[in-house]
């Protein structure tokens, strides 16, 4: 029985967001924030339903995804396919400078960003006033996010030297803190 309020809260939260983002008059003034409030509240209901806070949080994150995809599917518009004229061609090999640029980007986004994330997150975690084991676990879990963010910065910045220097500094700072 405890499952029902949780499902209702998740679905109601999604419906409010749907109404607000679809600009339906009933939901316009309060739909967006009301939806988020209901989705947050569903975490509490899911925790009760699962008799566990940690499981409740996971269910509260999974349920809106499933509900939203159902709403998206319900909202689909099917149109006739438009065949566009596309030029047929042969694979053209990129010029050497383009290959070199992509190779450098790869070296930046994978080994450099990875090393900077590993050293940087570990070094920063040690500044936390926590038991060492907890800080190291945080470093381990944060590391992929820092790596991903670093890789994104490198790919997106029009001046690639800036993120390269930023990541190299993070790596150097981490190595310095950890080896001092």
């Amino acid at each position: 029985m405890a499952l029902l309020p949780a499902v209702i809260l998740s679905a109601a939260g999604l419906l409010c967001l749907y109404g607000s983002w679809r600009k339906q008059p009933l939901f316009r003034p309060w739909g967006a924030w009301g939806g988020w409030v209901l989705l947050f509240a569903s975490g509490w209901a899911w925790s009760l339903a699962a008799a566990s806070v940690e499981l409740g949080i996971v269910y509260a994150l999974l349920a809106p995804t499933a509900c939203a995809w159902l709403l998206v599917l319900h909202n689909r518009q099917t149109r006739s396919r438009r065949a566009s004229a596309v030029a047929e061609g042969r694979i053209s090999l990129p010029a050497l400078p383009v290959v070199a640029r992509h190779l450098l980007l790869f070296l930046g986004t994978v080994p450099l960003a990875g090393a900077a994330a590993a050293y940087g997150s570990t070094a920063l975690a040690t500044f936390l006033p926590w038991q060492l084991g907890n800080a190291l676990v945080l470093a381990m879990l944060v590391m992929p996010v820092v790596w991903g963010a670093g890789a994104y910065w490198l790919c997106a910045d029009p001046k690639p030297l800036r993120p390269t220097l930023g990541l190299a500094t993070l790596l150097a700072f981490g190595a310095l803190v950890l080896n001092l």
């Binding site: 983002w21 909202n75 149109r79």
Partner: peptide, 19 residues
């Protein structure tokens, strides 16, 4: 960050039309 309308369009789903 690449899709500023990602929330506004969160429920739009157009099948067909241009690929």
């Amino acid at each position: 960050l690449a899709h500023p309308r990602i929330f506004r369009d969160a429920f739009n789903f157009r099948l067909g039309g241009s690929r």
